[in-house]
Design a protein around this nucleic acid. Structure first.
Length: 415
RNA sequence: GCGGUCGUAGCUCAGCUGGUAGAGCGCCAGGUUGUGGUCUUGGAUGUCGCGGGUUCGAGCCCCGUCGAUCGCCCCA
């Protein structure tokens, strides 16, 4: 029976060629920039005890049951492929006994995440995130710095001018409770005009109505109260300090009182870097302050702030594909010159020059191969050359060719 | 989980109102002796996503399924 061809599992894809180069370029830039801010890179497991994520999500509705890749392992434990990495980093902080000293700790990570969702533009079931967290810092400068690091990454990638930082505060617990009450009162008063989805949100997660896409909802949202009047003086001062630091750091910001977070451990700063170039999936980097999460993982109160960004989305925004490296092709004219060619190839590599030697074919074949791999130059070794201790250095762009000693060829190719 | 669109050679696609498939690019082999990228000659390639149905006959019609894509829900 003809079985269906093997293909990648829905929502997964291979990163090959240009796709991988884009991915690598984004991660490398993020690693470099966060390094400049003193972040250290962590690699935590890509699967965790399901409780790690269940706790971070609290009782949040169907997210836990419907959108996580969970399974029972052979020991009977419930395991979940990480849907994000903040919870894992907080768990690691606690598990490794790092909550008592050397705080704040600044952590960078990059790696695959898994969510059981319907794929759409820039959104896959296995996707990749980079993220930065500052653990154990209650000061607004931490918020500002972690955001600035994110901004610098976007700048380094050359995509910052299509992106704007939208920022809001959720205040402290007291501010939030008061605001939530006011919000519920407002939406309840307009309940009949709300969309069906938003009526459900009103019961489950009223703050989410603020970013409803329904046009009717938006009119009601427009007249909804903002959090500002409900902020305690301390919360208000905190937000003002974050904004001031961001200004000093040179990060252009736009306050957006509609940015919210659904989960209880979030407080104070909430932000999103947003672009209009990716259709419905416009958020390119998002984060906030989460003062309660480390406690959920069984550690002491550890105020923290951070963000995560989808590598696929950042990759799509790159204007140009990072160039593939251009090797030097070493070409023996016949098998007799292979030993000499192999040695020359190794000399090039030892000198830091990317070099390849074709495994088969006559001179014509190997030249074609050199062209196909995008070689910038070919080093041709024939009977005469080997006998006379020289090599033909052919510039494959210019089409020029010089007969010179191997050492000189290597020296030229380094430059 | 829900809805729109789509699924033909490696890639991009054409295929009229149903009569058992085509182009361009790419690939392979030539255009004599140790030289690629241009040019030129010739060649190979598809169970038309998969399964079922209607029909004398289906790539074209119907149903299902898988996948892609755009959006909704969700967004930790």
């Amino acid at each position: 029976m003809a079985s269906t061809p093997l293909q990648p599992v829905r929502g997964t894809r291979d990163l090959i060629g240009e796709d991988f180069r884009r991915y690598h370029h984004v991660v490398t830039a993020a690693r470099r920039i966060t390094g400049l801010y003193g972040f250290e890179e962590w690699a935590t497991p890509i699967f965790e005890d399901t409780r790690v994520f269940a706790r971070s999500l609290g009782e949040t509705s169907d997210v836990v049951s419907k959108e996580m890749y969970s399974f029972t392992d052979r020991g009977g434990d419930s395991i979940t492929l990480r849907p994000e990495n903040t919870a894992g980093v907080c768990r690691a902080l606690v598990s490794n006994g790092l909550t008592q000293s050397n705080l704040p700790r600044k952590v960078f990570y990059a790696g695959p995440m898994f969510r059981y969702e319907r794929p759409q533009k820039g959104r896959y079931r296995q996707f990749h995130q980079i993220g930065a967290e500052i653990l154990g810092a209650a000061e607004p400068l931490a918020d500002a710095e972690v955001i600035a690091a994110g901004w610098n990454i976007l700048e380094a990638l050359g995509i910052s001018d299509g992106v704007v930082l939208e920022i809001n505060t959720l205040g402290d617990a007291e501010s939030r409770d008061a605001y939530r009450t006011a919000l519920v009162a407002h939406f309840t008063a307009h309940k009949d005009s709300l969309s069906e989805d938003s009526r459900i949100r009103l019961e489950k997660n009223p703050m989410r109505i603020l970013d409803s896409k329904d046009e009717g909802d938006r009119r009601i949202v427009a007249t909804a109260p903002t959090i500002q009047p409900y902020l305690t003086p301390a919360a208000s001062a905190f937000f003002a300090a974050v904004l001031k630091h961001l200004e000093t750091l040179g990060v252009p910001t736009r306050e957006n009182p509609r940015i919210v977070r659904g989960l209880d451990y979030y407080s104070h700063t909430a932000f999103e870097f947003v672009t209009d170039r990716l259709g419905a999936q416009g958020t390119v980097m998002a984060g906030g302050r989460y003062d309660g999460l480390v406690e959920e993982m069984g550690g002491p109160a550890t105020p923290s702030v951070g963000w995560a960004a989808g590598v696929e989305r950042l990759s799509m925004l790159l204007a140009a594909s990072p160039a593939a490296p251009r090797p030097v092709a070493v070409i023996p004219v016949s098998e007799a010159q292979e030993p000499a060619a192999i040695q020359l190839t190794q000399q090039l590599r030892a000198a830091g020059v990317t070099a390849e030697i074709a495994y088969k074919g006559n001179l014509k074949r190997r030249m074609e191969r050199a062209n196909k791999i995008g070689a910038r130059a070919a080093l041709i070794l024939g009977e005469d050359e080997v006998a006379q201790g020289v090599v033909q250095l052919r510039d494959l762009d210019a089409g020029t060719q010089d007969r010179i000693p191997p050492a000189e060829a290597v020296a030229r190719l380094i430059g």
